[in-house]
């Protein structure tokens, strides 16, 4: 697989002795959407900041499209756009001016038509002459995205793009991410909202305590670590788990109205038939049956807890 970013043995220890990244290795594939998951303080932002050149690494290297991000920073950085986590934005300049500023800063020739296109796709065009301080938080977030896209980057970092963002903007953002992906842009996003990663990412990396715990194709990860649940709704509540079911991983729920059986999808035999037969043998009659897959969130919580 063609890597667009190679992180090799990257470590970062801050002056106060805090070790935010510990020997991180990460290959980001060209054109993919990678979700970087981790609890607060896991090192997500430090990793992004180190790749984009805002924070200097203590050791290790980062290659962006084959260019070292320290010794060949011009080539490396001109390919990268960054939407920061905080709403760090000026106050008195206009929306249009600040986006044009970003484009110039990255060394691209002025291109009013392109800037117009970005502002329109982010519903910012009618606000283009407004001062930044007059904008709402959501609008500021849109401006930050416009700034990051102003120089037509091929790699886009979104650091917690949907923290504190309303539904409309979130939808707009994911539509934009889809468009960018269709154009071949590689997207790396960090998020707390695991359902988001689940919905949009191709691969998932989990980071905690400055270490990458795993990087895996999302579908494979879900399959590998995923548990499924079988919920059996009973016609009349059961007082206790029937004798024949005690050998299975079965629990009562909803005041005995439901039996919940948890099983691994990757096991050779799921045991569903045996469970259903045992229910039958216990003389319980069924009202309804449903199965559900454990979410990425469950997987994530399990992983982080395991490490702790």
């Amino acid at each position: 697989m063609d890597s667009v970013i190679s992180v090799n043995a990257l470590s970062k220890t801050y002056d106060n002795g805090f070790s935010a990244l510990k020997n991180v290795n990460l290959e980001i594939h060209r054109g993919e959407i990678l979700a970087l998951l981790g609890p607060n303080g896991a090192g997500k932002t430090t990793l992004i900041s180190t790749i984009t050149g805002i924070v200097s690494s203590t050791s290790g290297t980062v290659l962006v499209d084959g260019y070292d991000n320290v010794t060949q920073y011009r080539e490396a950085r001109s390919r990268v756009g960054l939407v920061p986590q905080e709403l760090t934005i000026g106050a008195f300049e206009s929306v249009y001016a600040t986006v044009a500023f970003s484009r110039g800063l990255f060394g691209s020739k002025p291109n009013p038509a392109y800037i117009e296109k970005i502002l329109k796709s982010l519903s910012l065009w009618d606000k283009k002459d407004d001062q930044l301080r007059m904008l709402s938080g959501g609008m500021k977030r849109r401006v930050l995205i416009a700034k990051a896209l102003s120089h037509e980057p091929t790699i886009l970092f979104l650091d917690e793009p949907t923290a504190g963002v309303d539904v409309e903007l979130r939808k707009d953002m994911w539509r934009l991410v889809e468009e960018l992906r269709a154009d071949g842009v590689t997207i790396i996003l960090t998020t707390h909202y695991i359902e988001e990663a689940e919905e949009i990412a191709d691969r998932v990396a989990v980071i905690n305590g400055g270490e990458i715990l795993l990087v895996e194709d999302k579908a494979e990860l879900m399959q590998k670590l995923g548990k499924k649940e079988l919920r059996v709704e009973l016609k009349s509540p059961a007082a206790s788990i029937p004798e024949g079911l005690k050998e299975f991983d079965v629990a009562l729920a909803e005041d005995g109205n439901q039996l919940v059986y948890t099983y691994q999808t990757n096991q050779e035999s799921t045991g569903i038939t045996a469970v259903l037969q045992a229910i039958n043998a216990a003389g319980l009659s069924l009202k309804d049956i449903q199965t559900s897959q454990s979410s990425l969130e469950d997987i994530f919580v399990d992983l982080v807890r395991e490490q702790a």
Binding site: I54, A76, R77, P84, T88, I89, L105, F106, G107
Partner: peptide
Amino acid sequence: FTGTIYEVLSAPI
């Protein structure tokens, strides 16, 4: 102070 320096730091300059 405002944090907007991030942009200058991440730019190819």
